[in-house]
Amino acid sequence: MKVIKRDRRTEDFDIDKIKITLIRAAEEGNVPFNNSDIDTLLKLIKKKIVSDFNGMIYTREVKNIILEELRKLGFDSVANLYENYIKQ
């Protein structure tokens, strides 16, 4: 799976980058976000990306999937923090 960046470069999809960003965003907002929550979320994100996209995905689509899954699981505060964190 390749990710197409904003500047059109491509790189390999790396679920660990998403994990690190989510943890940092939650930490900045002092929001409790345990390992079980993160693992569940990452599995859902990866499953959606792999099943819905054929080998290539844009970063904005990854972001939208992350936000969608966070909100589905009731992590609205983490979704808001994530959105603000990635804008920095």
Rank of each mutant, 00 (worst) to 15 (best):
I45D: 01
F75E: 01
S36P: 00
Y82H: 03
V31R: 08
R8W: 09
N84P: 03
I18S: 06
V78F: 03
I57P: 13
N64V: 03
I20M: 15
T59R: 05
V31D: 01
K19T: 02
D12P: 06
F75H: 07
N30Y: 11
N84T: 05
R60L: 15
E69F: 01
V78Q: 04
R9Y: 03
Q88C: 05
I86E: 10
Y85P: 02
E27S: 07
K17R: 15
R6A: 12
L73Q: 08
E61R: 08
G55M: 05
K2N: 13
L81D: 07
V3D: 10
V31P: 01
D37K: 05
I57G: 13
A79S: 11
V31G: 05
S51P: 03
K17F: 09
I45W: 00
L41S: 01
I23C: 09
N34C: 08
D14N: 13
T59H: 04
T21I: 13
K47L: 10
L81W: 05
E83V: 00
D39G: 05
I86Y: 03
I18D: 12
K48D: 14
I49M: 09
V3I: 15
I23L: 15
I49R: 05
M1Q: 11
F33N: 02
N80K: 14
V78C: 09
K2C: 02
I65A: 04
L44F: 04
K47M: 10
K5G: 12
T10G: 06
Y58M: 12
R6S: 12
E69C: 04
D39W: 00
L67K: 03
N35V: 02
K48C: 05
I20K: 15
S36R: 01
F75L: 00
E11G: 10
N80Q: 13
D37R: 07
E27Q: 10
L73G: 04
